[in-house]
Amino acid sequence: MHLTDIREKLADRPDLTRHLAQVKEQMATCIQCGTCSGSCPNAGFMDMTPRRMWRAVLADRLDLVFSSQTFMLCASCYVCTLRCPRGLPLTDAMAALKQVAFALDLDRFKRSTRFYRAFMDNIRQYGRVRETELMARYFLAVKDPRVPMSYTGMGIKLMAKHKLHPHFPTLGPGRLGPLFERATQQQEQ
């Protein structure tokens, strides 16, 4: 991922540019003390610690930011936000980066993006998750036969433990529709 590519993509998305500027502004008073990285339960799995992520944001190194999976691995546990001596909204900022990455539809996050969408659609439709359908939709969305294959082993294990229900009793439509509409409306505002 090159800086120029990101800038090109952002050029026709003033809304996202604004969004990113907002994140930078929110992070401005960061003193790089590393409390966030130290407190993050997922830091060990991240290719870039949260502190480095904020530093990259402040240095306008969007190439580094969007080459990283860090914000995707944020579990929204809010420990960093609670501990930050500067009182920065770190978890919110992670979420904002996630949103921008989705909106830009970057290749690197294609699978994550597809999964999130399939997941939310599933919930919207049924008011809860229907695992088999969720996975089916996800596999269709990624359009890559290798993906379902990679999940076969796990699927069999889950089925053996009765965690997957291929013959799920038919449910009526969920009632979360209005909630989603309201959220979308708010986001647009």
Partner: peptide
């Protein structure tokens, strides 16, 4: 470095308090 929080010591640590921090390079 700023340590985010502390947990009490345990049997494994012989009562000592484990302190975890992240150095600038991101090393735990």
């Amino acid at each position: 470095a700023r340590v985010h929080s502390l947990a009490p010591g345990s049997k494994e640590t012989d009562g000592a308090i484990p302190v975890v921090w992240m150095d600038p390079s991101g090393e735990r």
